[in-house]
Computed example of a mutant assay.
Amino acid sequence: MSKLSAQDIETKLLRFPDWEYFDDAIHAEFEFDNFRDCFSAMSRIAFECEALNHHPNWSNVYNVLTISLSTHDANGVTDKDFKLAEAIEAIVEPVDE
């Protein structure tokens, strides 16, 4: 998978308002009501990561989840990162039906 240009990344980020691009990665921070909800989201995200064979750099402090995505093999952001970001968004901010 090839590394995206900064312009391509910024264009793709228009669909992901919670994400920012810096340090050759896309980053987001999500706040939940409590630790349990945060950890539950992390568990669901972990299954998506395994399915996509793509794993984030992430950290959790109580109810806050911080995520950085980049494709190490490409030394930067690729479409693979945006595919995972889309899956993460669906988990942490589900659309009301």
Score class of each variant (00 low, 15 high):
residue 41 A to C: 06
residue 32 F to L: 03
residue 42 M to H: 07
residue 40 S to D: 09
residue 69 L to K: 00
residue 43 S to W: 12
residue 27 H to A: 06
residue 48 E to Y: 12
residue 62 Y to W: 11
residue 79 D to H: 07
residue 14 L to S: 08
residue 30 F to P: 01
residue 96 D to P: 13
residue 15 R to Y: 13
residue 96 D to L: 15
residue 29 E to L: 01
residue 3 K to T: 03
residue 95 V to K: 13
residue 74 A to S: 05
residue 6 A to I: 14
residue 83 K to P: 07
residue 5 S to N: 06
residue 12 K to Q: 14
residue 42 M to Q: 11
residue 48 E to G: 10
residue 33 D to N: 13
residue 43 S to G: 13
residue 70 S to M: 12
residue 70 S to A: 03
residue 97 E to N: 13
residue 34 N to D: 15
residue 43 S to Q: 10
residue 58 W to G: 04
residue 80 K to C: 10
residue 58 W to S: 02
residue 28 A to Q: 02
residue 38 C to P: 04
residue 66 T to Y: 01
residue 31 E to M: 04
residue 68 S to A: 08
residue 61 V to Q: 08
residue 63 N to T: 03
residue 33 D to M: 07
residue 47 F to T: 15
residue 9 I to S: 04
residue 38 C to I: 08
residue 39 F to E: 08
residue 83 K to G: 07
residue 3 K to N: 00
residue 96 D to G: 08
residue 48 E to N: 11
residue 10 E to Q: 13
residue 22 F to D: 08
residue 63 N to L: 01
residue 11 T to S: 10
residue 83 K to H: 05
residue 46 A to W: 03
residue 60 N to E: 03
residue 6 A to D: 06
residue 58 W to P: 02
residue 63 N to R: 10
residue 15 R to K: 15
residue 40 S to G: 12
residue 76 G to H: 01
residue 60 N to L: 03
residue 50 E to H: 10
residue 13 L to Q: 10
residue 78 T to W: 00
residue 20 E to Q: 12
residue 64 V to T: 07
residue 12 K to V: 01
residue 64 V to M: 07
residue 30 F to V: 01
residue 37 D to N: 12
residue 39 F to Q: 05
residue 61 V to P: 07
residue 77 V to Q: 02
residue 92 V to N: 06
residue 24 D to L: 12
residue 85 A to R: 04
residue 74 A to P: 05
residue 82 F to N: 01
residue 37 D to V: 02
residue 7 Q to K: 14
residue 49 C to Q: 10
residue 73 D to A: 01
residue 88 I to E: 10
residue 2 S to A: 11
residue 38 C to T: 11
residue 3 K to M: 04
residue 85 A to I: 04
residue 29 E to A: 11
residue 54 H to M: 11
residue 85 A to D: 06
residue 17 P to G: 03
residue 80 K to Q: 06
residue 89 E to S: 10
residue 17 P to D: 04
residue 4 L to Y: 06
residue 27 H to E: 05
residue 2 S to T: 13
residue 4 L to T: 08
residue 90 A to L: 06
residue 82 F to P: 04
